[in-house]
Structures are given as structure tokens and as C-alpha cells.
């Protein structure tokens, strides 16, 4: 089955090429700048009417209707233990696709889309990436600033664990 094998090979090559660099969407949260891999981001929308939901952690702002699909909205500031901020015109919801679920994240502002080389990524300092912060996967040093790399898959799976604990605690 030669054709089939060739196909696989092609894909691998492609992956190797892509592996050298990644594309990020960067956003602002408090005074920090974060980056998420662009493949995880479905779209970026303006915050609208959010329906609050009881028995959920503080950082779950509620539910919105995204083209007839009901998705939860996470306030990333509260999720990271930062103080809640006044709503501004720059606020955006980043709609993320992760592990079959669609989730919205409120951020202060979305800055830009950029491509970085893999070797630009440095491991996060141990004091930051400590316990329960496995979702911080690295630091990217740009010209005048630092970009914190965020693994949303990891963040949201921890989110689930946290929910589970919260549920158990409340029951």
C-alpha cells in the first residue's frame, strides 16, 4: 500500500516544518501579556449578555448563546486570582475549542497574532510554574516584552478538576 504510506510520510514532514515555529494569539490580562496557540482559538467576540449560573465557581461568569450554541464564559482574571476589573471597550471573549468543548474566556484585550520560533520559548521560572500551574508552559521573550505561554487544554482540564472538588465540597 505505497500511497497510504507516502501520505503518512508527507504529514510527518509537514509536522516537522510546522514544529519549528508556532503562531500565537496574544492578549492582555492585568499588566501581563499571554499567548495561546492560534489553532485553539475558534474566534474572538465582543462580550454580550451573559446569563449567570448558580452553584458555579466565581470565575464562571455564566452562559452565552453563540449562534444557537450555549457555551460557558470564564473570567480569566478571576480564574488566575487577579482582581476583577471594570468592563472596558477593549474587553473580548476568546472562544476556545478544546477537547470537544467550546468555551469562552474573557480577557482585558486581544493584542495581535504573531509567529514565533520554537527556540524562542524558555521554560517558566520555577516560582511561577509551581504547584497547580502546569498550564503555564513557557515564556517568550520578545523585543520589549515578555509573553506568557498558556496551555488551554491543561488549563481547562484543571478547571474540571477544580469543579469536581468544588462539587464535592458543596455536597
Amino acid at each position: 500500500m505505497p500511497t497510504f504510506k507516502r501520505e503518512i510520510k508527507g504529514r510527518e514532514e509537514h509536522q516537522r516544518e510546522a514544529a519549528a515555529s508556532i503562531q500565537l494569539v496574544s492578549f492582555r490580562l492585568a499588566n501581563e501579556e499571554y499567548g495561546i496557540e492560534i489553532t485553539k482559538v475558534q474566534e474572538i467576540i465582543l462580550p454580550g449578555d451573559i446569563t449567570r449560573v448558580p452553584q458555579t465557581p466565581d470565575y464562571i461568569k455564566g452562559l452565552i448563546n453563540l449562534r444557537n450554541m450555549v457555551i460557558p464564559i470564564i473570567d480569566l482574571r478571576l480564574r488566575f486570582g487577579l482582581p476583577e476589573a471594570e468592563q472596558t471597550a477593549d474587553n473580548r471573549i476568546m472562544v476556545i475549542n478544546t477537547r470537544g468543548k467550546t468555551v469562552g474566556m474573557v480577557v482585558d484585550a486581544v493584542s495581535e497574532v504573531l509567529r514565533i520560533a520554537k527556540d524562542q520559548i524558555a521554560p517558566p521560572p520555577p516560582t511561577v510554574a509551581g504547584l497547580g500551574r502546569e498550564y503555564l508552559t513557557g515564556l517568550v521573550r520578545l523585543e520589549h516584552r515578555l509573553l506568557i505561554l498558556l496551555d488551554v487544554d491543561c488549563l481547562l482540564s484543571e478547571e474540571e478538576k477544580a469543579n469536581m472538588d468544588a462539587m464535592e465540597a458543596s455536597v
Binding site: V53, P54, Q55, T56, L63, M69, V70, K101, V103
Partner: peptide
């Protein structure tokens, strides 16, 4: 279903 993108919440059967 709320569980489709989030999870089920006690007292709420859906949205």
C-alpha cells in the same frame, strides 16, 4: 444541554 460545553449544575436541567 449544559454538559455539552460545560457540566451539569444541580438544580438546573439545561439551558
Amino acid at each position: 444541554s449544559m454538559a455539552e460545553n460545560y457540566k451539569n449544575v444541580p438544580g438546573i436541567s439545561g439551558a
